[in-house]
């Protein structure tokens, strides 16, 4: 009986892809912001530094936070909005390590059916994914046009490619999404781009997206061996630097990885500014990410998504970066 139980458990672990203790699990998705990990694995950068990394796909940023807190994954790239909502709930099982890229212009609001201005959206439906960067982008774009996202329009909460399907069917007058789905939205018949995250007050003030990508790590994993964790992130940022130095090779790698059309990936990747290890200290400052996170938190609170504004600096590890 014990042998059978042991065999079943072994099969279960195999089936669930259980990793050994040394494997560092990365929580990712199909978004281009995960490219440094794909590069780090494929180009052997992690291996060179003595790390074995395995990527697992997690649908939403909040699921990636859950994985980090449970130490099911050791690091993740996720949307800043999910990180801020977790911090505001006083969830302390993760660190905010840094920001690997800024990619403004890769998400936007697209209308169909003859709508050519944001003001025309009053009383209409907008399809987007709530509590994400695009939610903030659309809220800010509407605000600048004198509309209130909570009163003047109806938000239809849908994810990923469903936004495109909904707008294509005419069930919503406009849709907001990030790449690769933003390209699909723009390719719809009669599509008009009403604005992107580059048109928001956040971009004008901080030159960041409304909810940039952030790199977070499991607190349990970092605290177990902080020196090793720091060495690992130096290796990660070496992969980021590779992305910055090899745009053509990166394009080939991303196209092969996500199976999207080369032209669409090329346009999206052109908007990416890869931020190196040396740039982290400047990024995590009041003029950039911290100022932006404060404004984003205040907006999220106005939208009823945050009860309190988190002291996000307390989750950081700026002691790792050069002053």
């Amino acid at each position: 009986m014990r042998i059978v139980a042991g065999l079943l458990l072994a099969l279960l672990s195999l089936g669930c892809g259980a990793q050994d203790d040394d494997t560092i699990v990365y929580a990712g998705s199909a978004w281009y912001g995960h490219a440094p990990v794909w590069v780090g694995i494929q180009k052997g950068i992690f291996k060179k530094h003595g790390f074995r990394v395995e990527e697992r796909k997690f649908g939403s940023s909040s699921d990636r936070i859950n994985a980090l807190e449970a130490d099911n994954a050791q690091f993740a790239s996720l949307g800043e909005v999910a990180m801020l909502t977790a911090m505001s709930r006083d969830r302390r099982g993760f660190y905010w390590i840094g920001c690997q890229n800024i990619a403004p212009g890769n998400e936007g609001l697209v209308a169909v059916g003859g709508i050519t201005s944001i003001a025309d959206l009053k009383g209409k439906k907008i399809a987007l994914q709530r509590i994400t960067s695009i939610h903030l982008t659309v809220a800010l774009l509407l605000e600048e046009a004198g509309l209130d996202i909570t009163k003047d329009v109806t938000v239809v909460n849908v994810t990923d490619s469903t936004v495109v399907d909904i707008v294509r069917r005419g069930d919503a007058a406009a849709g907001g999404m990030w790449e690769p789905y933003y390209t699909d939205l723009r390719e719809l018949d009669g599509a008009t781009v009403l604005g992107t995250d580059k048109d928001t007050s956040i971009y004008k003030r901080f030159q960041t997206m409304s909810g940039p990508d952030v790199i977070c790590a499991s607190k349990a994993w970092v605290d177990k061996d902080p020196a090793r964790a720091k060495r690992f992130f130096e290796a990660y940022w070496e992969a980021v630097a590779w992305c910055k130095a090899h745009p053509t090779e990166l394009l080939d790698l991303v196209v092969a990885h996500i199976g999207k059309e080369r032209v669409a990936v090329e346009i999206a990747l052109k908007n990416f500014q890869w931020l190196t290890w040396d740039e982290q200290r400047d990024m995590l400052s009041n003029d950039r990410m911290f100022g932006q996170a404060q404004v984003a938190s205040e907006l999220l609170q106005r939208l009823g998504q945050l009860e309190s504004i988190p002291e996000f600096k307390n989750w950081t590890r700026l002691d790792w970066f050069q002053q």
């Binding site: 909040s62 999910a82 909502t85 709530r130 509590i131 909460n157």
Partner: peptide
């Protein structure tokens, strides 16, 4: 909708 949305907010 309530359950899925609130899950995103922990």
């Amino acid at each position: 909708t309530l359950i899925w949305t609130k899950k995103e907010l922990s």
